[in-house]
Design a protein around this nucleic acid. Structure first.
Lengths: 164, 164
DNA sequence: CTTGGAATGTCAACAACACTGACATAAAGT
DNA sequence: ACTTTATGTCAGTGTTGTTGACATTCCAAG
């Protein structure tokens, strides 16, 4: 391998290419959060509320502790957000039946409707982007994202991926 | 095309697939910023400082106004960050020669060294992810990201892409 | 030349949301 | 009984966004 047969395949690993990837990530994430941010502002909420709503919607009945480990914030920080969502009637907190220390979280009808409004807007942007580039690019996109996550995050993300 | 030959190619546009893409974006971005965040904390800086340093490094001599339109924040917000970076001797602000209202920004040697430390760590993560998935996936990744940006952001991002 | 507006940047005050630390309560496990 | 776990709360702090007010500089119309 004197002439390094792989070298032509490694051009995407130059510092310049990587810098472009970094900036693309920055700008894309901004675009990605722009629509929900606009909607949230109407209701006086922020991104933290969106994340809580999203993951409660994805896993109804989840506990506060579950949410904490997924979101990776402190309980004080999460609690401030949950308190306002519960007070406003978007999230319902039920004391656990088996373990009464736990609080299980559910979206109310109002909560579901905000969740739908938020995820519709975000899905629409993602759908537009996906449609533009086609399934092959999308699959590459997902591969890179998963490779970029921390290992412990991947666990939360795709727990049922081994059914291949 | 009575049986819709494209339908099998549209499976990646289901709500479930889109939701997964949304979450992947969330988790990947967190991993993406984790390393720089750790480094920045050592010096008492935050993400805003990173962004300022990054774009000053990319375009030395840029003006505050330029930076504002790229970063999409208010000038007051940027100014606080710039002030501390200038006070700490990481960025140098030179009054414009042609237009004395403008301030042109440059990294000092100290600034360059922090920039290198930050971008090295971020590039390393991106390089690892890229290596894992290969050039085809990377190209798809970049395509989706660019499609997901806002149009006005894409302008800042790839101004010299027409040399095809 | 002067005056007034536009562009550029700075300072001050405030809000959102993350953090740490300390503490309270209730329930479960040993 | 004692410890651990799950949750919630209070107080304080830091980063980063916001708006408002203001200073400086440039430029162009009178």
């Amino acid at each position: 391998m004197s002439d390094s047969p792989r070298s032509e395949n490694m051009l995407f690993l130059t510092d310049e290419q990587l810098r472009k990837g970094i900036e693309a990530m920055f700008f894309a994430y901004r675009g990605f959060t722009a629509d929900p941010d606009r909607i949230l502002k109407k209701y006086g909420y922020g991104r933290a509320h969106h994340r809580a709503i999203h993951f409660v919607s994805r896993a109804p009945g989840t506990t506060v502790n579950n949410l904490l480990s997924i979101l990776g914030v402190t309980k004080q920080s999460l609690n401030r957000v949950l308190r306002s969502l519960i007070a406003d009637g978007l999230i319902e907190s039920r004391v656990g039946t088996r373990d009464k220390r736990e609080r299980h979280l559910y979206l109310t009808e109002t909560g579901k409707s905000l969740e739908a409004e938020l995820s519709d807007s975000q899905r629409e942007r993602m759908r537009d982007a996906y449609r533009k580039v086609g399934p092959t690019a999308v699959s590459g996109f997902r591969e890179v994202l998963e490779a970029m996550m921390d290992e412990d995050l991947r666990r939360h993300f795709a727990p049922a991926k081994d059914k291949k």
